[in-house]
Nucleic acid binder design. Structure first.
Lengths: 188, 188
DNA sequence: CTTCGACATGTCAATACTGACATGTCGAGG
DNA sequence: CCTCGACATGTCAGTATTGACATGTCGAAG
């Protein structure tokens, strides 16, 4: 039931509507950590309100309902964050592809790994300026978090790009080896 | 429907029973990429057999059914791997925790980040010797893949450990700043 | 020969999630 | 004043997933 905790975490930042929360999942949160659509978010908020973890603070225009975290909600969030992590839910289609690359012919694998490397490098180049901007416009003294998530994504992409490059090297080395006619062909 | 593709990928390595496949998910695959229990795997294999992607190759002792990939199955796996990745399913409780750390009090956050850093460092130290062993006992010439997944996990842990350390630094810097009485206290 | 742990496969109810469908409102720009 | 895009909330059927329950067998060690 991690969706619940994701919502608690978002509401810890301040009141928000189901619509606002849905938008939050469109960004890095949904890309790296946890996906959710509004069809799941709205019912969950109702259940959380029933459980006393959140409350409807006010209603706005277009039937907008603004939710706030209750003390119980904040306590539950803290408990979940500080709890023994153990083995949490993991489901990542992109990583799965990386694990299964081994099933491809070397030529296909090379194509795939090159695409991964290119994509990750491009993302790093897209994100770095954004992060640098953040660092310049608000000093170290302003909200220490929020940038953390961005930095996480950035480092993730860097790591994957490096991994893909390493894998390509390894693949190339192994293909070279295969292509060589026999042992003892290299200069002494 | 990534479970299906995970199963196809595992079967690309050779025939296996539902039991064998379940065991595969206990390792790195289940830890980093995709979780699945036997209760989901068995029904899925039946559906895949119906769809002609796999076939029961033989039955062994204890009712063991050995599945093999069909040509259709192999083609489907290749198609899925080489397809435009887009935005695949993402759900990772551990990463979610990292994103929500911002909701904690600085002191709690510090504790959490230290635990993350310690855990990742420990994992790196556990995995590195295993990888080195693999590299020594089978040269670059033997199966180029399989190690790729391990390397991915290793680099992942390294990246997260480094991120946690960076976050701790940033947190400490920001707390120092807060503790300082006012502007203009530093030496000119 | 017995026992026990690993092997091996399954069902079922409850819960989580997705995608399609449905509905209506506010505010800015033309 | 009209129109349209973003705001805003929801239901529902179908599918995926989990956790509890159920059942039985083979092989090795004692």
């Amino acid at each position: 039931m991690s969706l619940r905790h994701a919502l608690l975490g978002l509401l810890a930042d301040g009141p928000a509507s189901g619509y606002d929360l849905t938008r939050s999942f469109d960004g890095d949160l949904g890309r790296y950590a946890w996906q959710a659509g509004h069809t799941r978010i709205y019912p969950e908020l109702v259940k959380m309100a029933d459980a006393g973890l959140v409350a409807v603070e006010s209603t706005g225009p277009r039937g907008r309902k603004s939710y706030v975290l209750t003390d119980d909600g904040r306590a539950e969030l803290r408990r979940w964050l500080l709890d023994p992590p153990e083995q949490g839910a993991v489901r990542n289609e992109t990583v799965l592809r990386m694990f299964l690359v081994q099933a491809l012919e070397p030529e296909d694998a090379r194509r795939y790994l090159e695409a991964v490397a290119d994509h990750c490098t491009a993302e790093v180049e897209r994100l770095r300026p954004v992060m640098d901007d953040l660092d310049e416009h608000e000093g170290v003294d302003t909200l220490p978090f929020g940038r953390l998530a961005g930095e996480y994504g950035l480092r993730q992409y860097e790591a994957v790009a490096a991994w893909a490059a390493w894998s390509l090297d390894r693949l190339a080395a192994s293909q070279e080896q295969d292509a060589r006619p026999a042992v003892g062909n290299a200069p002494a």
